[in-house]
């Protein structure tokens, strides 16, 4: 068995372990490189969000361009649950996950027989519906003023009750959830389920005619992705102790697409993580120099789409292959082409 297939059978790969260990040390050095622990929390949350988004774009070839809606729904669900029902961290996170699953399943029921640009249009339309509701339902969501005073609830493990008000403590908590999600998603994409999703991305018709229930896979993966995005949203609400409708806007939905693509989500499991880190680092580093950082990031994004759709991860893979003399990894061009109904 070669290295790749060995890794794909593992629960935790060496790279994953190394990455998580490195992240564990992050609070020790992040201040010394001129950054701050809260950035670590943000990167992990957006990486989780981008990973669940990439389940659709990269693995299943489903362009969901209104995905911010589910992130936002998670944030509101987390806040509303703790305000109105019970202020328990675990139940609030479950509420966020559940709200995303339900909203995702509702939308997926309408769109799972579609693909390509129409799929993108429909996801945008639904995303906008949720966004408008979040803005207009002032009495529930606080409208554009946002839902404020969301508490960083303590993590109650029964034997110990850990306070998460401090950014370092919250970082480790988010890291734990991120690591669990990372492992879960790794297993998912390497399971028969993940294999069939990738088959659907490449050729939906062929997948149906060898007996796979394409609609059901598209339905479940959209719901799952929405649920995990909402979980990330719930963590985000906790991190910034508030929830605002702007994360549900078309712009923010676009940011997750940009992250995923620039990082290399089309060719790599790690692409969304790389992209999220790059995006937030660029925001802080370029943003410190100029207010128009999105201008430069937007230009970078255009360049990536034009010249290197495989993104950073694809570039890295290419580099490794050239040095190792290997050949034949799927190109991002081909994958992008395959996104529209398998006309590869």
């Amino acid at each position: 068995m070669d290295k790749d297939s060995r890794d794909s059978s593992r629960l935790v790969t060496p790279a994953m372990l190394g990455f998580i260990v490195l992240l564990c040390t992050l609070p020790l050095w992040i201040g010394k490189v001129g950054l701050y622990p809260y950035l670590g929390i943000e990167i992990l949350i957006w990486a989780l969000y981008a990973l669940s988004f990439n389940l659709l774009l990269g693995y299943s070839g489903l362009p969901s361009f209104g995905h911010g809606a589910y992130f936002g729904i998670g944030a509101y669900a987390f806040g509303l649950f703790q305000h109105n029902i019970v202020p328990s961290l675990w139940l609030c996170l479950m509420a966020a996950l559940g709200a995303g699953l339900v909203a995702g399943a509702m939308v997926a029921a309408f769109i799972s027989h579609r693909r390509g640009i129409y799929y993108a249009f429909m996801t945008i339309a639904f995303g906008q519906v949720f966004w408008v509701v979040a803005i207009k339902a002032h009495s529930i969501t606080g409208g554009e003023d946002g839902l404020l005073r969301i508490a960083r609830l303590p993590a109650d493990f029964g034997f110990a009750n850990i306070d998460l008000a401090d950014n370092t403590a919250l970082f480790y908590f988010v890291l734990a959830i991120f690591a669990l999600a990372l492992i879960g998603l790794w297993r998912l994409v390497n399971s028969p389920y993940g294999r069939i999703l990738q088959a659907i991305r490449q050729n939906e018709t062929r997948a149906a005619f060898i007996g796979h229930n394409v609609w059901l896979y598209k339905f479940t993966v959209f719901s799952l992705s929405a649920g995990l995005s909402a979980l990330a949203g719930g963590l985000f609400a906790m991190a910034q102790t508030s929830a605002f409708p702007d994360v549900m806007s078309l712009h923010y939905s676009g940011y997750v697409v940009m992250m995923t693509l620039i990082g290399g989500g089309l060719v790599s499991f790690w692409g969304p993580v790389i992209g999220a880190a790059l995006f937030l680092l660029a925001r802080d580093i370029i943003g410190a120099v100029t207010t128009g950082w999105m201008l430069w990031f937007g230009l970078l994004f255009m360049a990536v789409v034009l010249f290197k759709p495989e993104g950073v991860a694809g570039w890295w893979q290419g580099l490794r292959q050239r040095t190792a003399g290997m050949s034949g990894n799927a190109t991002g061009f081909a994958r992008l082409r395959a996104l529209l109904g398998g006309r590869a």
Binding site: R187, N190, P192
Partner: peptide, 22 residues
């Protein structure tokens, strides 16, 4: 992998996410 994807055995485990295809 083209062949494996079409195997009825894989299809029946389609939602078995703990299973490693490789």
């Amino acid at each position: 992998d083209n062949i494996v994807t079409a195997l009825p055995g894989l299809r029946r485990r389609g939602f078995d996410v703990s299973h490693a295809v490789a």
